[in-house]
Amino acid sequence: MVTIQDNRRPSVDAPKVRINRALKLCSLFEKVARATFDNALEVAELDVVRAGMPIQKQDDNVTSLALLGHGRARLERKLPSGQTVPLGYRGSGDLLGEAALAGAQTYTESAIAIDESEVVRFPVASIHAWLRDDPALGVALLGLLVDRQRAAEDRIESLLFRNVEGRLVEFLLAAVDRWGVPDTRGTLISAPITHLEIAQSIGSTRETVTITLGALRKDGLLAVAGRRLIVVDRDALAKRR
């Protein structure tokens, strides 16, 4: 089934073709049994979510696990104070809402589409059945959770032991790895990330991020293309960590 939010048209490929493509992008399904893969293809539903719209909402009841088949998403959590804190970004082949596999009854964060995204959704009950019957899926899921834990620990270490410029440089290098595309001036970070989002991610202020980005531009390490940043010299930038 295809659900199109905000009346945006999906790509011309048939839904099952697009779901199959998404499954092959996801490391979770690389080594699963053929029966698991075929069942995932059978039960999955496909949404096309317009940029700026939620893929999942914090505190909504968990009904499915989402896989980004195409597009990008921003993770964020709303605190009791009302402040919204960005938690990171996801791209094609990444899972969303994996906390549901640990028994969470509601989504612990929101996921907002950065651009029009194809989202494949699996019923939580199906995921639990596959985990019970297919050891390869359990091993892959454990690897995913370890990677997410390591990323969280790296972020904490950066917040504790690096200055603002060092944390900003780490953020930019990670953005290049995830969103970088070749550009005549270097590597373009294709995701339009605001100074405020960067500041919240690295534990700083928008004003400080703006000043620090300006200094990196002055030193010839960064350039701008509209709302996007270009890393001109990655190696030289990495030395500023």
Rank of each mutant, 00 (worst) to 15 (best):
Q5S: 12
D6K: 14
R8K: 11
D13S: 14
K16H: 10
I19Q: 08
L25R: 12
L28Q: 01
F29A: 05
A35S: 14
D38E: 14
A40P: 00
V43P: 06
V48L: 14
V48M: 08
V49Y: 03
P54E: 01
I55A: 10
K57W: 06
Q58A: 05
D59F: 12
D59L: 07
R72G: 03
R77I: 09
G82R: 07
P86K: 02
Y89H: 08
S92P: 07
D94Y: 06
L96K: 00
A100N: 02
G103N: 08
G103R: 08
A104L: 09
Y107P: 00
S110E: 02
A111P: 06
I112Q: 07
A113E: 01
I114K: 07
S117I: 01
E118G: 02
R121D: 03
P123C: 05
P123K: 08
R132I: 07
L141M: 15
L144Y: 12
L145D: 02
R148Y: 05
Q149T: 13
R150L: 13
E153T: 13
S158W: 00
L160V: 10
N163S: 11
V164H: 12
L168Y: 02
A175T: 07
V176N: 08
D177M: 05
T194Q: 11
H195G: 07
I198Q: 06
Q200Y: 08
I202A: 02
G203C: 04
S204G: 07
R206T: 12
E207Q: 15
T210L: 05
L216T: 00
L216A: 01
R217P: 04
A223S: 15
V224R: 05
R227F: 04
I230F: 04
D233M: 03
A238G: 03
A238K: 11
R240F: 12
